[in-house]
Design a protein around this nucleic acid. Structure first.
Lengths: 149, 149
DNA sequence: CCTTGACCTTCCCATCATGGGAACCCTTAT
DNA sequence: ATAAGGGTTCCCATGATGGGAAGGTCAAGG
């Protein structure tokens, strides 16, 4: 199977298959004499596994561990369960953060007339604050685990 | 005020202040004879505005619009409210996606013994699926609007 | 046999917001 | 005068993904 077929069979783009190979997430594929990558059903199943785990928001780094457990027939299900629960915890923390943003915005929007007049508590709130020192919270902008699928 | 002072007064790092200037989000700062950027309270307030908007999850692109409205004294509050509501909608969509991930994971984890045995519905589910064509959903991985604050 | 088109290869670039660091210049206090 | 602690620019890296160019390969059909 060529990379294109493996891509459509697994739902992982050819680009990403090469990327996963380059980062070591999956082993290097066997090549034909002319350099084409060749995939078997086993590898396609691995790619589907990766795809599903990404759909569930697992960061690629965690998928490394999941794949190792997947391959390890003597794994303990408790190890897998723990990973899943950590993932749930991380997602729930991010959900709570976003919910807090929603709540704040909703509060501000509720207090905003939404008419032709310029007065708007949203802008007032965003612009408020004395010019003294601000707490330099690090604005942890890059979520460790973005993937909404 | 030098950039370092403006950074601690606004909560935006000096690095990011220069970045915002380079992208045109904020106007270029006045310079001293020797090239140091100089900031006034007005600019610090603008930076705090940006910081707060980022904290609420607004992508920088939207902040461009918010800033324009902030500066425009003849703005209509309805324009601001609409932006806030769009932001709320986007956040809620992402929350729903993540909640769906949590639900799926919780379902799988509940069915997993979590003991020393290898059997685990989590891995079974991730690995399942025939090797036929998979729907090539684009895995919209990059959230348009990540910032959890 | 040769062409054509679809596929493959590698390599580079871009995203987005952010940090790290190097190399070098400026200011201020001792 | 010198050292410390700013500032400046420029380059690089992140993580997962797509886009695209330049060039090699394969299969089908004339």
């Amino acid at each position: 199977m060529n990379i294109g077929e493996a891509a459509s069979a697994s739902g992982v783009s050819a680009k990403m298959i090469r990327y996963y190979e380059s980062t070591g997430l999956i082993p290097a594929a066997v090549r034909t004499g002319s350099g084409y990558r060749v995939y078997t059903d086993t590898e396609v199943r691995m790619l589907r596994f990766i795809r599903r785990a990404r759909d569930l928001g697992f960061p690629v780094e965690k998928i490394v561990t999941l794949l190792a457990l997947w391959r390890d027939r003597s794994r303990h299900s408790s190890d897998v369960k723990r990973l899943a629960q950590e993932q749930i915890g991380g997602l729930e923390r991010r959900i709570a953060e976003m919910q807090a943003m929603v709540d704040t915005l909703q509060h501000l929007a509720d207090a905003c007339g939404g008419d032709h007049r310029p007065d708007c508590p949203i802008l007032t709130d965003l612009g408020k604050g004395a010019v003294g020192a601000a707490d330099p919270r690090p604005l942890p902008h890059a979520p460790p685990n973005p993937s909404p699928a």
